[in-house]
């Protein structure tokens, strides 16, 4: 288990290193930042001065080394738009996104897995068919549409919940549920099919032959086996949540990281974009690392390999 852990950790660190390189290159390829920082009326002298200030006149590899050096020391530069350290700007926004994301993920996982098991156990019944229909609908409706409809119904017509913004738990309900729809449906479908496959396995048949109670067969044996692909998919879906968050945060004016990224792209606030992307990448890599560890806990075949 320890060598398995170390192996995964090494892979994660190498990936993070690769990401810094990609982020750095992508930022250089997106055009000359200097022109977005100076006035349109600025002369050549002013442009050159700005370039020198930002070290952009140095060779590219030196720029990269100084960039990695800064990042390693926690210095992500200053936001051009807010004129504050990027770390501060991102930190306050990321809290909001984590709040939204975790709420949505909790809903998606708990509902998705329970509905999936229910559908599998009642295969072919009305419940099963209803759950599957719902899943297809949830996966085919775009976030922004669900969000707008939710605002229309629950905020404008019924007046149960606030339309947008953040602060109270009521503010969280609609964006979290909107964000949860897609991953919930995906998790439900894979739980259902994985559970069905497991319940048909030979070892489940042998458990029945041994005379074990159905509840033991389903909850102790079948579920644990069925969860292996569900864990893999949940990791991916948590990553996808970040993508969905950009849209949902915009629809509900939720002051999170997604919202910040959109603003920063519009205003070409490249230190924020660069750090934001790096942040998201580190988050996803950490997530993958955790998913791998969960696999190791569930499955001895991975642990002992």
């Amino acid at each position: 288990m320890v060598s398995f852990f170390l192996h995964r950790l090494r892979l994660a660190l190498i990936t993070i290193f690769g990401v810094t390189l990609l982020v750095f290159i992508a930022a250089r390829l997106s055009g000359d930042v200097v022109y977005t920082l100076v006035d349109a009326s600025a002369g050549q002298e002013e442009i050159d001065k700005m370039r020198r200030q930002l070290d952009l006149d140095k060779p590219v590899w030196l720029q990269y080394i100084s960039y990695v050096g800064h990042v390693a020391r926690g210095d992500f530069g200053r936001s051009i738009r807010y004129q504050r350290p990027v770390v501060e700007v991102i930190a306050e926004r990321i809290q909001k996104t984590v709040q939204l994301g975790l709420a949505a993920f909790a809903v998606a996982v708990s509902l998705g897995i329970s509905l999936g098991i229910l559908a599998a156990r009642t295969r072919g019944s009305l419940i099963d068919r209803a759950a599957r229909t719902l899943a297809v609908l949830a996966q085919s409706m775009p976030h922004f549409w669900i969000g707008i409809m939710a605002i229309l119904i629950f905020a404008v017509i019924l007046r149960w919940l606030p339309t947008s913004g953040s602060g109270t738990w009521q503010h969280l309900v609609m964006p979290a549920l909107t964000l949860a729809t897609f991953p919930m449906a995906a998790i439900m479908r894979i739980t259902r099919s994985s559970m069905l496959e497991t319940l048909d396995a030979e070892y489940v048949k042998f458990l029945r032959v041994k005379g074990l109670a159905e509840r033991l067969i389903v909850w102790k044996h079948a579920l644990r086996n069925a969860l292996i692909p569900v864990v893999a998919l949940s990791g991916i879906q948590l990553g996808n949540l970040l993508g969905g968050a950009v849209i949902v945060e915009t629809v509900f004016s939720w002051p999170g990281l997604g919202n910040l990224m959109v603003e920063s792209i519009v205003s070409r606030d490249y230190p924020v974009i660069q750090s934001g992307v790096l942040m998201i990448a580190v988050f996803l890599i950490t997530l993958n690392f955790l998913v791998d560890l969960v696999f190791g806990v569930i499955d001895p075949r991975i642990r002992y390999n």
């Binding site: 070892y203 048949k205 042998f206 032959v209 044996h221 086996n225 569930i298 001895p300």
Partner: peptide, 12 residues
Amino acid sequence: LQDPMVSLDPLY
């Protein structure tokens, strides 16, 4: 059952 290789739960 027919195949002992798949008659046992791999996780226990």
